[in-house]
Design a protein around this nucleic acid. Structure first.
Lengths: 213, 213
DNA sequence: ACCTGAACACCGTTCAAGT
DNA sequence: ACCTGAACACCGTTCAAGT
């Protein structure tokens, strides 16, 4: 398709598009070669291996997380915004949310995320040690939310709603003698969007980290 | 090694052992066949495919999460214990924490986890809708903590500590002009064990979900 | 009834050969 | 300097053949 000379940027662009359209498992070096209109092995001129390519992809995706943040919104809205963007970026590359990465050795954009979040917690009045713990806490929640939602991310919002509906039905039809609470709460499970549930969880976590006066 | 006739239980046992020793990527149907002393394809007599085998593995691992819980410890210690056990089980099968699964269609042991957690939140005084949201919140945090820690899980505790030390050093040697908060908090990052950090985050989340009176 | 082993359709990656 | 394409060492899985 894309007919220009092969560059790292072109390759990263195409990789992101393939993963968005076909999911992680649909992306292979051969499918990438076909989308680029080159031999599959031509990519190895620009990236040492598949892992380095995916690292470049994550660098690109995470680069959007800390740009153009509202300047004077206060620590809490900024924290929520950064975490929502991070979750969204992770959804676009399940391999990232999944494991392996996270934790240094990181890339420049990941340092920017760490710095931004730590700064918000310091602005909220936390000491350095408490800010570090708070940072680990929100990262764990964000990664988990993305990992759970990743499987449904390639679905349309309509299909996603149907899937949630189906899951509620599964809970609703369990044996009420054995699973009374699950049956009772079944209508409330998987309610709203995954992003809304994530924000709710994040707000509760922030309430616990920085109790309001 | 194991010389008995092939059964589903034997196969699941051996799979868990291989994943524990060599990690997820070290487990292949061929390595499984070798460990069982059979042809690699013999397993297909007992499991439709690799996915069904891994589902049986997760069923086995998650089966330990809700057994023998302290009867009268109160909702909060029980919640923490269930989440810690769940996290530990997920660490033993990174594929589970990773994605794809979670969310129905689930297996019996997963329903037991859902029921137990919902029950604790009801005991804590939450309405059904609030209990469902609380359930989603703690699951997200638990899965995320396991996913982040999965990469280091096959290391010895000594190697793990060294890794954390190395990561702190990375943060400490960043440019303090660009990353002042990260450099300042570097000594506090990745402090203690991953389990301790997880419990800290979980306690904060529970504080936010059920404010103390 | 259960296991074997050749075979198939894939992977990521290497490397000599082309232009 | 960059790309090609055959080839290698793997995968998961199928299926006819063995016992």
């Amino acid at each position: 398709m894309s007919r220009a000379t092969l560059t790292r940027d072109t390759i990263v662009d195409t990789t992101i598009r393939i993963i968005a359209e076909q999911g992680t498992e649909g992306f292979t070096m051969r499918s990438l070669g076909q989308a680029l209109g080159t031999d599959p092995t031509a990519v190895y001129r620009h990236f040492r291996d598949k892992a380095e390519l995916l690292r470049a992809v994550s660098e690109r995706l995470l680069g959007t997380v800390t740009v153009d943040l509202p300047a004077d919104a206060g620590w809490r809205p900024v924290t929520v915004e950064v975490c929502r963007r991070l979750r969204s970026a992770l959804l676009n590359q399940p391999q990232l949310a999944t494991a392996l990465q996270f934790g240094p050795p990181l890339q420049p954009t990941e340092f920017a995320i760490t710095e931004t979040l730590l700064r918000q917690f310091r602005l909220a009045g936390l000491e350095q040690g408490a800010a570090a713990l708070a940072y680990h806490s929100v990262i764990e929640l964000t990664v988990g939310s993305a990992a759970i939602d990743a499987a449904l991310h390639s679905l349309s919002s309509r299909e996603r709603s149907q899937q949630y509906f189906r899951w509620r039905s599964v809970y609703a039809t369990l044996d009420p003698a054995e699973y009374p609470e699950t049956v009772g709460a079944s209508a409330h499970m998987y309610r709203g969007t995954a992003d809304e549930r994530f924000v709710h969880a994040l707000e509760a976590l922030l309430d616990g980290i920085v109790p309001s006066p």
